[in-house]
């Protein structure tokens, strides 16, 4: 068991390292860097009408700016300087915001985690009972209806669902879905009232984000349980004279749940990916909109910090679900 955990942890660290390299490299791919796009926008916006000479002056400043931000060094040096600071918790400046990156993203990181956690809770609370019911009542009307709704849930992309929901809320209730706080709580400090406000706002994004996960989990739970229901140990339990629901909950459901714990790990990457787009559509104050913005402005350090944090978050979440799996499944615990 210890070996298993060590193996997992080593793999997790290795994964995080790979993500950091990958995310850093990928941002280097664009033809220009931040300075290019900054200058370009300066020319387009502020200096649109001005003579060419001042535009050229800007271009001359370019090299100075690049030096200032360290963009003129070889890539691997830039990477090591960056990762060295990141390991110490210093992410550097968000170029666009002119603020430390950490200040830009810390609240958003927290809300991203909250949203992911809320979605997982929501997904499980809904999917497990439905999965059990549809497996036990296989081929009933309820089974078929849930299968169909589940298919719809799987097929509708999250962000479309968000769009449709927003549209309906806007047109029929003249109410704007979006954000995670009411206006009065937008930018005040944390309080109980604010936490409650967050809770109230959280369920719509969690619902949107959770639909495909819920639909998928229902199918997995149903399939797992159907497999387990056929196993001899269920027949044994039945032959012992136990009441049907009691034995189902004690034996096959328990066994069918085990592998699902590891699906939390698989679910996380999808959830985080999904939350980016949904957050953009619903303008949620999570990391998604900032990431998109930083990609548009080619803010290398901000974008890779966010990608790295999202990756770390996912890897840690997966590791936690692995540990949970070890705790609840005696087969893994022993071998």
């Amino acid at each position: 068991m210890l070996a298993f955990l060590i193996r997992r942890t080593v793999l997790a660290i290795f994964t995080i390292f790979s993500i950091s390299i990958f995310s850093f490299m990928i941002i280097q791919l664009p033809a220009g860097d931040y300075v290019d796009s900054y200058i370009l926008r300066q020319i387009e916006e502020g200096f649109g009408g001005v003579q060419r000479s001042s535009a050229e002056g800007l271009l001359e400043r370019k090299e100075a700016l690049r030096k200032l931000y360290g963009l003129d060094r070889p890539m691997y040096i830039q990477y090591f300087k960056w990762i060295g600071r990141v390991v110490q918790g210093r992410f550097g400046q968000a170029l666009e915001y002119r603020l430390p990156i950490w200040d830009v993203i810390k609240d958003r990181l927290f809300l991203t985690i909250i949203l992911a956690a809320a979605t997982i809770v929501f997904t499980w609370a809904l999917a497990i009972p439905i999965g059990i019911y549809t497996a036990v009542k296989q081929r009933s009307i309820a089974d078929y209806s849930f299968t169909f709704v589940g298919f719809l849930g799987l097929a509708t992309p999250d962000f479309l669902l968000a769009l449709i929901l927003m549209y309906m809320a806007f047109v029929y209730f003249n109410f704007s879905v979006g954000g995670l706080f009411s206006p009065e709580f937008q930018s005040v400090g944390w309080s109980l009232a604010r936490a409650w406000d967050l809770f109230v706002h959280l369920w719509i994004p969690a619902l949107i984000l959770g639909t495909s996960g819920t639909a998928g989990l229902i199918r997995v739970m149903r399939a797992n349980l159907l497999d387990e229901l056929r196993k001899p140990y269920v027949v044994t339990a039945r032959a012992k004279g136990l009441a049907e629901w009691r034995l189902i909950m004690k034996y096959p459901v328990r066994v069918a749940l085990n592998p699902l714990v590891s699906t939390i790990g698989y679910l996380l990457p999808y959830l985080i990916s999904g939350s980016i787009i949904v957050s953009v559509v619903l303008s949620l104050p999570t990391l998604g909109p900032v990431l998109l913005q930083s990609l548009f402005t080619q803010d290398l350090f901000l974008a890779s910090s966010i990608i790295l944090l999202l990756g770390v978050m996912t890897v840690v979440g997966t590791l936690l679900s692995d540990i949970l799996l070890v705790i609840i499944d005696p087969r893994i615990r022993i071998s």
């Binding site: 990958f22 995310s23 698989y266 990457p269 959830l271 985080i272 990916s273 980016i276 990756g311 996912t314």
Partner: peptide
């Protein structure tokens, strides 16, 4: 598979 690939 362990990484949210969409941002990448």
């Amino acid at each position: 598979r362990a990484v949210p690939t969409l941002p990448l």
